[in-house]
Design a protein around this nucleic acid. Sequence first.
DNA 1: CTTCGAATAGCACGGTCGTTCTATTTCGGC
DNA 2: GCCGAAATAGAACGACCGTGCTATTCGAAG
Lengths: 211, 211
Amino acid sequence: METTVRTKGERTRAAILEQAARLATMTGLEGLSIGSLATATGMSKSGLYAHFGSKRDLQLATIESARATFVSEVLRPGLAAPKGVRRLMAACEAFLSHVKRRVFPGGCFFAAAAAEVGTRRGPVRDAVAEQQRDWLELLERLSKEADELGELPLGTDPARLAFELNALLVAANTAFVLQRDPRTLGRVRTMIGERLGLVGGDEPRRPDARR
Amino acid sequence: METTVRTKGERTRAAILEQAARLATMTGLEGLSIGSLATATGMSKSGLYAHFGSKRDLQLATIESARATFVSEVLRPGLAAPKGVRRLMAACEAFLSHVKRRVFPGGCFFAAAAAEVGTRRGPVRDAVAEQQRDWLELLERLSKEADELGELPLGTDPARLAFELNALLVAANTAFVLQRDPRTLGRVRTMIGERLGLVGGDEPRRPDARR
DNA sequence: CTTCGAATAGCACGGTCGTTCTATTTCGGC
DNA sequence: GCCGAAATAGAACGACCGTGCTATTCGAAG
């Protein structure tokens, strides 16, 4: 797998997109203008524009860049944990961590993008919706794995659990961004931990009748 | 209380703001332009603009209008239910209903607005954040009332329950808008009903050891 | 019916937007 | 170090933005 970029053009292009993804979480994908992005990256408007055929292409490339960042900042560290409920918990913690560390200054890129382009149509919207689906399916897969290992309460529906977890994570992101209260992230981490039957340390507990 | 508007100016102003709130859920508060709003309301740009001193004022007035709509479409029907867990459930159902009925074409106005202006500062952001706080505090108050009536499981934290419910509602809104799947709203209604111990009909059940 | 203020329209402004064209600089293979 | 190609900059365009100014139309009180 080739991670490093070869030509200079690809390198600057990647740097532009990284900046674009960060900026887009504050101004929105539409509010992100070529001029402001050029200023932010220290380039001329046309020099920057030459890397993309149109603004739509820039938006799509920005989404792809944000997806890659999401993979390396959330998915990769999450999947590093041992299989089962701990991996599920690790994925949630990685999400909260990337919000707290302000990987994107406006919180989760896709939470912001989903709210913005959710009502439109076209490839930009589709790309955001697809990423949202993938993330939910991952949570569902991890939930199912944890369930099959018997680490979740009997009768737990993996799809429903995934929906609940995502709801809590996104709500934590929104509250953190909107109310500027960093304690929210810790509280939600606790809530999720209890929901998954992980109290205190990192040891999973066998489910019983009590919740 | 004076509900009807007196002068013609106030009437058209209210009509403009109603349209503005609906449009803003699709284009965003910033993407909402004076020209497009004028076209949508069949007015001239300057004729419309005369009702507001600036775009910021228009945005603030739009938020206030959306707040009023939210009150009459969600809070009022929700508070009509009998006190306790049924009122809490009714509030959640009223929220889901106003999303399903597309009171705002882009789903919940404040969910969209929060994601857009959450990172900025100034009075627009503050107004949105305040509405968000008020809504959460209402959910918390209703939760506390239900708890004091003994209709919730022992040891339930009203603030936490309110956070969970809001998270589920907003996630339902996002999924409905983004994935265009109307079944999501019904599923979340069921999830909330079970979470509150209301299964099948509308009768609250006494909490017991099982969840 | 008149009249005066309120409501709306017409028009123009500076600015920024996305986009294109052309010139200039910079890079990498020989 | 040269040279073709790739990368970047400069300038300009039409369109639309928010915002004022002035003229016109409308509505309600007398």
